[in-house]
Design a protein around this nucleic acid. Structure first.
Lengths: 132, 132
DNA sequence: TATTACGTTGACGTAAACGTCAAGATCACT
DNA sequence: AGTGATCTTGACGTTTACGTCAACGTAATA
């Protein structure tokens, strides 16, 4: 049996997006479904790419940068020169992800301090009220 | 000496944003500069809020959700009920940040695997070439 | 055969987050 | 009094990422 394929509706249901969205991604060359007559047939590759697209979006990346990023994924083969370039780009991307994660953890730490302080104040007030 | 204040140009230079941006944030009630005649005077509070705004943006939050988030920050005082509500909201936000961080780390791990594989392939090819 | 479900291509609309003039005020110099 | 720097308030323009019709095709089903 060959690789499973998906209609536009199936992929939409699975990832909770609208057909408009998938057609838009195709127009922007993020997805490249094949055709059965007029109808789009999405392959495993499209499905995998869609996953990456949606994750990229959650990280706040633009579709255009996600597109470049996907192309970067694709060039896993190619010559030594291409692979070397790929690794460089990938490491740059890793740095960006690391920075974002660090910033996130800073924000989490700050927020935790505020939560702790507020909860401490709350228990002080509770103790005071109990003492009366 | 009292708290330092900033002109719109000063804050723009410091945070690398345009005046239009700060006026826009004021209109959306994310900043509340006071006035010297017509001119805006930004206080320490505005500066602190701007920092949070820009960080929120880097995390992909909308200005509207950042606004609510800032107001949430402000209500560090207020009654016990308000504080309790605040803590609940803050914990929800913490969960969201945690999820995002976890997703980021998953992505980083995946990417690292690809990098490692590609580098391994590169060194295999280098060894092969050296053997000839 | 008619309906229903699912799909197609335009084409125009929209919300967010600013950018980009235009026209004028205010202030420091010269 | 003139020049330049910095600021002001409109008001319209722009990009991104889709939403929302409209009008149509095709395929299974009642």
């Amino acid at each position: 049996m060959s690789d499973p394929t998906y209609s536009i509706g199936e992929l939409c249901a699975e990832f909770d997006v609208t057909p408009r969205t998938l057609r838009f991604y195709e127009q922007r060359e993020l997805l490249t479904p094949i055709r059965d007559g007029q109808r789009r047939i999405f392959t495993q590759r499209d499905r995998a790419r869609l996953k990456l697209i949606l994750r990229g979006k959650r990280f706040g990346f633009s579709l255009e940068s996600i597109r470049q990023w996907l192309n970067l994924y694709d060039l896993g083969d190619g010559g030594v020169t291409q692979m070397t370039t790929w690794v460089e780009n990938a490491k740059t991307q890793m740095g960006a992800l690391r920075d974002q994660r660090d910033e996130l953890e800073d924000a989490m730490a700050e927020l935790q301090v505020l939560i702790d302080e507020t909860e401490a104040e709350l228990s002080r007030r509770a103790a005071k009220r109990a003492a009366e």
